[in-house]
Design a binder for these strands. Structure first.
Length: 285
DNA sequence: AACCAGGTCATGA
DNA sequence: TCATGACATGGT
């Protein structure tokens, strides 16, 4: 038996690798022989949980800790969720699910391609782009591909990008690649901006409006106050928290505001986490 | 074989 | 500013 590197998880801190990687927040993870295999930024690696131990191979412990946000105190979230009946149930069902700290560029492109189209298709798009334009990596004799950097995409050109069968998203992705190339500090700018300003920066990319901007902030910038009201969340609130609200006369925007308000009151600054838990519970029904 | 999918953008009134 | 259709593809 080969010995792999190990992280001893803090026994006070909930962490469930399976929940975290199977909830759909990040593309391109898959399970094989008890291991999760994935590519993050420039590295392919595998990881496996055995109780309080996290075995991994391919990257360093800092990388693992940062990606899975192992230092984040999840109890701050759970203390906030436990007083709400739906959120509490979602908390129990998804116990240990952590919001990842994804690579910002890949996350942005991924979220751009989620537009109204189910996540599986978006994942397939990211996979196709990677295998055509990304850099080849190897782990356990299997091939993996990085997600191409902005420069890789620009150098490959629009026809090559379009050949990945990513439909009309190709144009927006190319524009974003050029924009990021011109402003390599965009990530810092988002990180340093307050919430509304961060949303504005991201919304400045073609194909990203408020909603998608908030997804990106939640998954790649650790902004747990992000609360993107999408079709599913709208439905969850319709059927539970805002039951009886007749919103047929309201525009969607007004209803979305009502959803945001309710979420802020109930879950405070951890509403993004609440959203991920509620969504996952709803999705698995 | 139609129809739908975690949305955005460009139109038109 | 508000409602409506187009967008390109894969899965049911």
């Amino acid at each position: 038996m080969v010995e792999f590197d190990v992280i001893e998880l803090d026994s006070d801190q909930p962490f469930c690798l399976d929940k975290t990687l199977s909830c759909g927040q990040a593309p391109r993870w898959h399970q094989e022989n008890g291991w999760w295999y994935g590519v993050v930024a420039d590295s392919a690696f595998k990881v496996r949980q055995d109780g309080d131990k996290l075995h991994y191979d391919g990257v360093g412990s800092d990388f693992i800790s940062r990606y899975f946000c192992l230092d984040f105190d999840l109890w701050k979230v759970y203390d906030r969720l436990k007083d709400d009946v739906y959120a509490k149930r979602a908390m129990q069902e998804n116990y240990g699910l952590r919001i990842l700290n994804q690579d910002a560029w890949e996350c942005m492109v991924f979220q751009m391609t989620v537009n109204r189209i189910r996540t599986k298709s978006s994942t397939d798009r990211i996979t196709r782009i990677s295998s055509r334009l990304g850099k080849k990596l190897n782990i356990d004799g299997k091939e993996y591909f990085t997600f191409p950097k902005p420069a890789d995409i620009v150098n490959a050109g629009l026809p090559a990008l379009k050949s990945c069968n990513i439909s009309y998203f190709a144009d927006n992705i190319m524009i974003a690649a050029n924009k990021v190339l011109e402003n390599p500090l965009w990530e810092n700018e988002v990180n340093n901006a307050d919430y509304d300003a961060a949303v504005s920066i991201l919304s400045g990319f073609k194909g990203i409006k408020h909603r998608v901007a908030e997804w990106i902030l939640l998954f790649a910038f650790k902004r747990y106050e992000a609360f993107p009201v999408d079709a599913h969340i709208r439905k969850i609130f319709e059927e539970n928290y805002l039951k009886g609200h007749y919103f047929g006369t309201d525009t969607d925007d007004k209803f979305d505001e009502a959803v945001k308000d309710a979420a802020s009151r109930k879950f405070g600054d951890y509403r993004g986490y609440a959203l991920e838990y509620l969504f996952n519970t709803y999705r698995s029904q």
